[in-house]
């Protein structure tokens, strides 16, 4: 198996929490991993991305080539679109629907939605609403991870094990909250894709 994933968002949103869980699950599965992160200046509210590559065979480059990403996972809708040239023709976008507006010229919401609508293979969901309903707002990132998991080619049980291991030191309540959020996202995509 091989999955090339671009994680996108705005500095401070915490895209790396998603990468950390996938990375742990992949490591448990004995897969190879490369995960390029953004540190430094861009973290101050700028656009950030992480290239996450998982494969059963050796991975050469830390960066995903143009047109080769299987999946874009984004915490912000405009940021999902920023990396379109990296998405393969058959690739999927899984993105939060709520804009993070910290610039004056943020695009019109309708134009943004129309653009997302034009992308084949997209799952757009309001992760904060899901998180509030089933867990806590702090677990929103795990809703997004759940929604992306059907495209990961890793069993959801393995991702759940990753969540348990990563959040364990914060106590059982936090683990359960993140698991609930994860399952809500996962079920959403399963229903959406089976439609």
């Amino acid at each position: 198996m091989k999955r090339d994933i671009i994680l996108a968002g705005v500095g401070g949103q915490g895209i790396l929490s998603i990468a950390t869980v996938i990375g742990r699950a992949a490591l448990n599965e004995g897969l190879h991993i490369k995960q390029a992160e953004v540190h430094g200046m861009s973290q101050r509210g700028g656009d950030v991305q992480s290239n996450l590559r998982i494969s059963s065979s050796n991975i050469a480059s830390d960066l995903i080539p143009l047109g080769c990403a299987d999946l874009i996972i984004s915490l912000e809708p405009m940021e999902a679109l920023r990396y379109l040239p990296y998405l393969s023709v058959k690739g999927w976008i899984v993105t939060n629907s709520t804009p993070f507006v910290n610039i004056d010229n943020y695009p019109n919401q309708d134009a943004l939605n129309a653009e997302l609508g034009r992308v084949d293979n997209s799952v757009v969901l309001d992760i904060d609403t899901f998180a509030r309903e089933v867990a806590s707002p702090r677990a929103a990132n795990m809703v997004l991870l759940g929604a992306a998991t059907p495209f990961l080619d890793i069993e959801p049980q393995s991702i759940e094990q990753g969540i348990i291991e990563i959040f364990n030191r914060k106590g059982d309540a936090v683990v359960q909250s993140n698991l609930a959020a994860f399952r809500a996202g996962y079920n959403h995509t399963k229903e959406r894709v089976n439609e």
Binding site: V10, G11, M41, S42, G46, M78, L81, N102, I103, P107
Partner: peptide
């Protein structure tokens, strides 16, 4: 549709 998002 996308615009740059510089750090701040």
């Amino acid at each position: 549709v996308i615009v740059p998002r510089p750090p701040a």
